[in-house]
Every structure is written in C-alpha cells, then in structure tokens.
C-alpha cells in the first residue's frame, strides 16, 4: 500500500484513469475522486503512468487544411467575443427603447443646437466573410448602387431556428437586416437609413432566432457567425 489505499481502491483509481468505467461504477469512482484526496492523487498518478503510453502511438501528418481551419476558427471566436462584449448586444431589447426615448427627448428640447450630421452612403462595394466557432461560414457582398446586400451560407449548423442577419456599426447596436435563407443567396434591400453603416469595420453577425416574430429589435442569442465588413 504505497499510498494508503487498499489494492482494490488503487485498482479502482487506475480504472478511472484508464477510462474503462461506466455508469454507476464511474459515478462512484468520480465521487471518491472529489471526496478523497488520497484517491484523487492515486488517479493522477495512474494518469501520468498511462500517459507515457502515448509515446507508443506513431505520428501521422495531418492534411495541410487543418491549420488554416484552426486559424479561421480562432479569428471567428475572437470576433464573437468582441461582439458579445458590445454593451448593447444582450440587453438591447430593453435598452434600445430607452435610448430611442432619450433621443426623442433630446430632439424636442428647446434650444438644443441644430446640428445635423449628414452621412453619405459609401460608394464602394463591400464584402464580408462570417465565421463561427462551431464551423458556420457565410459570404456576404454589398452593392451600393442598388443598396443591395447578398448573403449566402456556405456552411451552417442545422437548427430549428432561422438565421437572422445583424448589422453592427461602431456604436455597437445591432440592427436587424431580416431573416436569411439557410441555402442559396438571400438578397436584402438595405433600408436607406442603414446603408451608411455598411462600411469598413462595421460587423455583420448572424444569430438564430424564431422566424415568426422577425425582424427583431435585438438578437436573443450569441451570434453563430461574425465577420467584419471590408470595402473593396
């Protein structure tokens, strides 16, 4: 009894490390692992010992496409993390009403300086590739002359929900561009008020939403794919 466990207990620790246990046996061993430090140390000891067996497995060169896929998924995950951090993303259903009200108040305040900002729509075409951590890929392009955005899913995880496209400009507030088809190209006539936002650095995102109530004021879930717009 090197470690104070009985041989049977130590063998159980080895079985947990080996991964052979199932069902109730596994649950019991895991309970012990959490409750009994000596047992937990024995499991780690066996994991370490068995781990050495990996040296006996031959190497096999992965195909060249694996690394670019990993990089793309890291970029996608980082974009999603950025978008999820945008302060309006989660609570914008509540907030956007309040923000709109505040703006309305500002507009009718007497004596407010009469400043108008005229934003001209960009006259450059724009493209974006949207990627998601779970492998979703969509390609989008925007033709300013027609005010039309085309988007096509290349790869989309199956879902009962429907993909909804969001445009997120620098203010971080997502604006719905409506639902998109899961197959083929969806052509979206971008509302005039939103066209100016389709410029470098703005973000397109797709979330899965209930089709009946679309378009929505705000997304209800984390986006499955995100991409930055680049003008060309």
């Amino acid at each position: 009894m090197r470690n104070g466990l009985t041989p049977e207990q130590d063998a159980l620790a080895a079985e947990l490390a080996l991964g052979v246990l199932e069902g109730a046996d596994r649950a019991e061993a895991q309970r012990l692992y959490l409750a009994d430090q000596t047992f937990a140390e024995a499991v780690e000891g066996w994991r370490f010992r068995f781990g050495a067996l990996h040296e006996t497995i031959g190497t096999e060169a992965p195909p060249p496409g694996v690394w670019p896929a990993i990089e793309a998924r890291i970029s996608a995950a980082e974009n999603i993390a950025t978008v999820s951090k945008l302060r309006f993303w989660r609570r914008s259903a509540v907030l956007s009403g309040a923000v709109a009200a505040a703006l309305a108040v500002a507009l009718v305040l007497p004596g407010a300086p009469d400043v108008r900002t005229v934003v001209l729509p960009p006259d450059q075409s724009a493209i974006a590739q949207l990627n998601g951590e779970a492998g979703a890929i969509l390609a989008a392009s925007y033709t300013p002359q027609a005010g039309q955005l085309q988007i096509r899913p290349v790869d989309l995880p199956a879902s009962e929900l429907t993909p909804e496209l969001w445009l997120i400009p620098a203010d971080g507030v997502p604006r719905s561009l409506g639902l998109i088809e899961t197959k083929g190209t969806t052509r979206i006539n971008v509302p005039l008020a939103l066209r100016a936002y389709l410029t470098d650095g703005a973000v397109l995102a797709v979330s899965l939403e209930r089709a009946e109530s679309a378009p929505h004021k705000a997304p209800t879930s984390t986006p499955i794919a995100v991409g930055k717009i680049s003008t060309i």
Partner: peptide
C-alpha cells in the same frame, strides 16, 4: 500569440493527429 500556437502545432500535430486517428 498565434505564431506561438503555430509553433506548438508544427512540433506536435503529427503526434496528436496519430492519437485522434487511433
């Protein structure tokens, strides 16, 4: 650092792919 991950990949992908395949 992504180039560091690339280095980890270059050093170990063959080994880990062998494990995954098996």
């Amino acid at each position: 650092d992504r180039s560091a991950l690339r280095e980890v990949y270059d050093l170990t992908a063959g080994k880990l792919f062998g494990i995954c395949l098996r």
